[in-house]
Nucleic acid binder design. Structure first.
Length: 494
RNA sequence: CGGGGUGUAGCGCAGUCCGGUUAGCGCAUCUGGUUUGGGACCAGAGGGUCCCAGGUUCGAAUCCUGGUACCCCGACCA
């Protein structure tokens, strides 16, 4: 598996090809026989499992429980919330039949025309409708609230154009769906969960994100407010990495979900939904990788440390093997995920390149010289530096180093992201920055959907978010010149 | 759905314009040997409905017609 990654030229058209190349060569995923769908390979899935595990832990820590709702949604459910159906109608997979039969002409198998469903089933693009149809039966009184459920599932959105992890026809995600007594409680929930996502992105993925509100144009179909975490990729494009929606009473009204409040009066329930998907894998890859391949944050790396023996002949291999096992045991005792690669059909140099491609944070090389001197070669993926260190105290050293690497990757991404937020005050500047530098552009906007649309049509840039921490500031809209009270973040995005 | 491109061994490709030995190269695989502190080398071997269908021709990977699949760029979107 000799692998040569194309040169990563940031902000160039070939970035997406480079990304594709990397995803496939690192063994994360590949395109499948079904158009737009993706095969997640074992190594990619192992990283996703690490993400899942931590997210799941965080959800439970915030009082949520897992549940599972059906893959198929009756078509009629969709039409109950007008904006929701409008938002998703164009990208739904529809089940119309339930049986196949042998082709009468003997040419394989055909759909049995007599097995047509009375009501078509939609393969869920998101589960609000089926869940609210269910919640209706669960909720009678304020004593039944809140309901705090999460589901890990796959969803299908029939996108015209797809990209591995970033946009696939089918993807894996989690979707939280909660029901509350009051508006305030629901808003608090939506805010709480976007902050869970922020924490996860930054502390586990080393991915700095900006939390903010979506503009009305970019809001989730059926939501009153959409909160988002926006990340920046190395080519200067933004990536919406997670969302949390305050749904108001829209779905409660659509599915007639009322509860008896503390005064005995019937009221509609307040709702939220929130989700992150395998798109986070794309974010992870695009945020940190370099020309040698992936760079994985230690906390998410399936293997945090790999030990490679350097040897001549069986005897030396046996000797290094013994020592490698001892060192690995010490590290494993500290909970470090260590792999010993004693394959003898590929050479050490090949392994070095391979683990760099796969983003393993720490690589150790143990040879005859080291056995004699009590040393070992230690290389770190984030900086691509290596040094020879004592075997004595190795486990402690590696444990500390993994933490340092975690911090360093985040810091590097944060510095880059911060350097890519540009304040502009004129339309000329806006275009100039967008076309030369990219990244986030902090600018005044008059608050109208029309202006946002016009800017998008002119530049392909959209409002990524209105940051939560935006300060009030008098200004004029870069496009319309009308007055504005705060800056918003624009960017081209995935 | 528009614009462009590509289908030849497991992967990456040349050959196609201008039809003519047994369809070729690199990587991977297998065998043997030599190697081994950054992607080893030598020798040998195996592996092909040249995307599909039809046509032209003594003869088609190559020319013609139709189909089909995938990739890239747009529109759409997490």
């Amino acid at each position: 598996m000799a692998v040569e990654l194309k040169d990563l030229t940031k902000s160039e058209e070939n970035y997406s090809q480079w990304y594709n190349d990397l995803v496939m060569k690192a063994g994360l995923a590949e395109n499948s026989a079904v158009r737009g769908c993706m095969v997640i390979k074992p190594y990619g899935y192992a990283i996703w499992e690490k993400m899942q595990a931590e997210l799941d832990r965080m959800f439970k820590e915030t009082g949520h429980q897992n549940a599972y709702f059906p893959l198929f949604i009756p078509k009629s459910f969709f039409s109950k919330e007008a904006k929701h159906v409008e938002g998703f109608a164009k990208e739904c997979a529809v089940v119309t039949h339930y049986r196949l039969m042998n082709d009468p002409d003997g040419k394989g198998v055909v759909v049995d025309p007599s097995a047509r469903l009375e009501e078509e089933l939609i393969v869920r693009p998101t589960s609000e409708t089926i869940i609210w149809n269910t919640y209706k039966n669960w909720i009678n009184s304020y004593r039944d609230l809140p309901i705090l459920c999460n589901q890990w599932a796959n969803v299908v959105r029939w996108e015209m154009r797809t990209r591995l992890f970033l946009r696939t026809a089918e993807f894996l995600w989690q979707e939280g769906h909660t029901a509350h007594e009051t508006r305030e409680e629901a808003i608090e929930e939506a805010t709480k969960m976007i902050n869970v996502y922020k924490k996860f992105a930054e502390e586990w993925m080393c991915l700095p994100v900006i939390v903010g509100h979506k503009s009305p144009n970019e809001r989730f179909a059926g939501a009153e407010d959409t909160l988002t975490i926006e990340a920046l990729m190395q080519d200067g494009k933004a990536l919406q990495s997670g969302t949390s929606h305050f749904l108001g009473q829209n779905f409660a009204k659509a599915f007639d979900v009322k509860y008896a409040n503390r005064e005995g009066k019937l009221e509609y329930v307040w709702a939220t939904s929130w989700g992150v998907s395998t798109r986070l894998m794309g974010a992870l890859i695009m945020a940190h990788s370099d020309n040698n391949g992936l760079v994985l944050p230690p906390r998410l790396a399936p293997q945090q440390v790999v030990i490679v023996p350097i040897y001549k002949g069986e005897e030396q291999l046996a000797a290094t093997r013994v020592r490698m096992e001892e060192l690995a045991a010490e590290m494993r005792a500290k909970g470090i995920r260590v792999k010993i690669d004693d394959r003898d059909n590929v050479r050490a140099g090949f392994k070095f390149a391979e683990y760099e491609l796969k983003g393993v944070p720490v690589r150790l090389a143990l040879g005859q010289r080291d056995l004699e001197n009590g040393t070992i070669e230690l290389a770190r993926r984030d900086t691509l530096t290596k040094e020879t260190v004592a075997q004595e105290g190795l486990a402690d050293r590696v444990e500390a180093l993994l933490e340092e690497i975690q911090q360093n990757i985040f810091r590097k991404a944060l510095d880059y992201r911060n350097s890519m937020i540009t304040k502009v005050d004129t339309w000329e500047e806006f275009n100039e920055v967008l076309n030369t530098k990219g990244g986030f552009i902090s600018a005044h906007w008059d608050g109208t959907p029309e202006t946002e649309q016009a800017i998008k049509d002119a530049t392909k840039a959209t409002i990524r978010c209105i940051p939560l921490d935006a300060v009030e500031e008098e200004g004029t809209c870069i496009f319309s010149g009308k007055p504005s009270k705060c800056r918003v973040l624009f960017a081209r995005s995935y």
